[in-house]
Design a protein around this nucleic acid. Structure first.
Length: 695
RNA sequence: GGCGCGGUAGCUCAGGUGGUUAGAGCGUUGGAUUCAUAACCCAAAGGUCGGGGGUUCAACUCCCCCCCGCGCUACCA
């Protein structure tokens, strides 16, 4: 394995439009923090970079909704997230933001650097323009009727109701959300990054170069992207919030958020180390690691590396340990539906219990597949693992040492195996020692491989072995006959406790602090680094040392506490379900003349077949009375081709034809949409002649 | 529809290049114990390894088909 001098660790920049929830934490920040803490303890040169991602249309839209400026809007959420991270103990070296001055400079410099090499493509295309406000409308600023489900407030990039991804031109009756007016198409110029030109290079770097050291989910996702063929991607937008395109003739253009956001890692590093930042990004002996969620894979493994490559002399990520998603009580976490455990709320409701959340989230870390957080599970893991195994073991050893030796670490010496009892103790000691060293090695190897679940399990194993060692040697029984043996046992038990204090630091920093206090270790814990270097048990606590007072590290989570949380989630769920079943409001009034424009008539389906390569479209041949024509209809999930044949249908016959998937559709079949989204055919109650008008 | 990842005990997960009775932790049940936050320790029960074919002397492990979950992507007048 290649040796590196230093490591740059980044955690995905959270988007500044809402608070943080446990999904964010489990996905990126907790594994990153654990990893960084481990590297620091080992004495490595490491920096841990993060910050708020504050640009993009969603921010401007959110600001507008709250009636504040984008600046005020991001200030609020940046502050909130920053505080929550800090309160939770995520140990960033810097938590910056993309609205900072340094970032503007860095991002513009990047653009210029690539621009000057004439790598970008420039292209003019038609986009919707709001004439009243005199601005081009980004996809999110246009709403209209969703062509799929008929939802009247679908966004230009996606319909929130049916989840369909859209382009603005697909919307029926597009409206600007800024003025409410109908936008017009107008040409605008943008810059594109020619990803396609980097395909061969990416293939070599990712597909050949990282087949074995990247996680399969990450590798597979990249391969899928590259194999599908890469397209040039537009990297600018018409917007007044963002990093301005640094060109004389680019007024009103800003860098597209996905281009500027990852550069934020570099800006933040500059802010942290104005002088020495370059070695963390340009020295080939620096290892770059991105911690992200799976939604970010393509940006960090394909697009950003290509940009770094284009900019020249930057290092590329050595690994991108992306996690899958965390669910909550069996459902997806959803910010908009408020189905989430918010970090800042957890920290209030469970004050002083940061380790508990860290522990549970790491133990269910979605490393290989989506996982599920439940409060019941949280309670069980805290009570039966943190309290019963770890906390209890430490407490037993502390209490015993105080009881028999007034809190003074007993002498460390070889126990002569002069009696059967002592021979047995020696056996138990050897057994425990071997097992402990195996766990230590496996823990460290798991940390190196970003397998934090496994690593934490091995940490707990130390306490498990410790408990068994006490049960096997039974010092409380020996106390009546052989205090020398008791001393040896407790000396070793304290060694285990000391090594746990060292080992738990990356995972459970509060426990580590408590243990240092209980062991009163400030005079000797500088030596603890050896544990990480030797990768084996060390003599962590010197003999004759005076211990501190025992303290309980964890307390049981009571039923009432988790009941309250479960109730809270249930309540928001019920509130969410109400509006979902509501009937849609009336559309604006129209005149009889508006209605008269529509040619609605009854037709008969002569033939029906499934459209190839589409899971929603049926291709219908319809007898309209005046002609036979082809109509494509998005009903394949509601009706099979067989059951459509021979059916009478109602259609709009004078709708402008539209080509879909290579075939022209001449008309639109009318359907009733039930509250659950189910589509049902509209038919006359008796059979009528094909071509009968509907008035 | 295409592509990617996943589907192993109640829960969370291990199971390089196929090979004896499929493992761990937690939970459950029983036992033992009292130093300890009714914790710890021991033992047991519990799985047709998503389903169906195939290759093989032998498949959780290889191949094909199907089903389910998640994601990306196309498309939905």
């Amino acid at each position: 394995m290649k040796r590196f001098k230093r490591t740059t660790v980044t955690a995905a920049l959270p988007y500044a439009n809402g608070p943080l929830h446990i999904g964010h934490i489990a996905g990126a920040y907790l594994p990153a923090d654990t990893y960084v803490r481990y590297l620091r303890l080992r004495g490595d040169d490491v920096i841990f970079i993060c910050g708020s991602d504050e640009h993009g249309v969603a921010i401007t839209l959110g600001a507008k909704k709250e009636g504040v400026s984008p600046r005020q809007f991001v200030d609020k959420y940046h502050g909130l997230m920053r505080q929550a991270f800090e309160d939770f103990g995520i140990s960033f070296d810097i938590y910056s933001r993309t609205s900072s001055e340094v970032h503007y400079e860095t991002a513009q410099e990047f653009f210029r650097k690539i621009y000057d090499q004439q790598i970008f493509l420039e292209e003019t295309s038609d986009q919707y323009y709001d004439e009243q406000e005199q601005i081009f409308l980004a996809d999110r600023y246009i709403i209209g009727t969703c062509p799929n489900c008929g939802h009247t407030n679908a966004y230009g990039d996606q319909c929130e109701k049916c989840g369909t991804s859209l382009s603005p031109r697909q919307l029926i009756n597009p409206r600007s959300t800024v003025s409410g007016k109908t936008p017009v198409l107008k040409p605008t110029r943008h810059w594109y990054f020619p990803l396609d030109k980097y395909e061969a290079w990416l293939r070599e770097w990712v597909i050949d170069g990282h087949k074995d050291d990247w996680k399969v989910n990450v590798y597979g996702q990249c391969k899928s992207w590259i194999d599908q063929g890469l397209q040039p991607r537009s990297i600018t937008r018409d917007l007044d919030w963002g990093v301005p395109v640094p060109l004389a003739d680019a007024k009103g253009k800003v860098l597209y958020v996905w281009f500027d956001a990852p550069i934020g890692y570099i800006s933040a590093t500059k802010e942290l180390k104005p002088e020495g930042w370059e070695k963390y990004w340009k020295d080939p002996e620096t290892r770059l690691i991105h911690f992200i969620g799976k939604d970010n894979i393509v940006f960090h493994c394909i697009i950003f590396p290509a940009i770094l490559k284009a900019a020249g002399d930057y290092i590329l990520p050595d690994n991108v340990p992306a996690n899958e998603f965390l669910n909550l009580e069996g459902d997806k976490i959803s910010t908009s539906r408020n189905h989430a455990v918010w970090l800042h709320e957890y920290l209030t409701d469970f004050s002083g219990r940061r380790d508990e959340l860290r522990y549970v989230l790491t133990s269910i870390s979605p490393e290989t597949k989506d996982s599920d957080f439940t409060w019941k599970d949280y309670q069980q893991k805290v009570n039966s693992e943190l309290v019963a195994i770890l906390g209890n073991f430490v407490n037993r050893v502390m209490v015993l040492t105080w009881k028999y030796f007034d809190g003074k670490v007993p002498s460390e010496h070889e126990l002569p195996g002069t009696t059967d009892r002592r021979k047995k103790i020696l056996e138990q000691y050897n057994k425990a020692h071997d097992e402990l060293n195996v766990s230590v090695k496996e823990m460290i190897s798991a940390l190196n491989g970003f397998r934090f679940r496994e690593a934490q399990f091995q940490l707990m194993n130390l306490a498990r072995i410790g408990n068994k060692f006490l049960a096997d040697t039974e010092p409380w029984k020996l106390a009546k006959e052989d205090m020398e043996a008791v001393g040896c046992i407790l000396n070793y038990a304290l060694t285990i406790v000391g090594n746990i204090a060292i080992a738990c630091d990356p995972f459970l920093p509060d426990a580590a602090a408590s243990l240092r206090k209980q062991l009163n270790s400030s005079s000797f814990d500088v030596n603890w680094k050896q544990f990480w270097i030797k990768e084996q048990l060390i003599n962590a606590v010197p003999q004759h040392h005076q211990l501190g007072q025992p303290e309980l590290m964890y307390k049981n989570v009571e039923d009432e506490e988790i009941d309250r949380q479960v109730q809270k989630l249930r309540k928001t769920k019920m509130e969410n379900e109400k509006p979902a079943s509501a009937v849609k409001p009336l559309k604006p009034e129209i005149t009889i003349d508006d209605f008269g424009k529509l040619d609605i008539r009854v037709g008969k389906v002569l033939a029906a077949e499934k459209m190839e390569k589409s899971n929603k479209l049926l291709k219908l041949t319809v007898d309209t009375g005046v002609d036979q024509r082809t109509v494509l209809s998005g009903i394949a999930q509601h009706y099979s081709p067989e059951e459509m044949v021979g059916k009478q249908v109602t259609l709009i016959a004078n709708l402008a034809p539209r080509k879909m998937m290579g075939i022209e559709s001449q008309g639109m079949i009318l359907m009733a949409e039930d509250v659950d989204g189910k589509l049902r055919l509209i038919q006359p109650i008796e059979v009528v002649n094909p071509g009968s008008l509907v008035n």
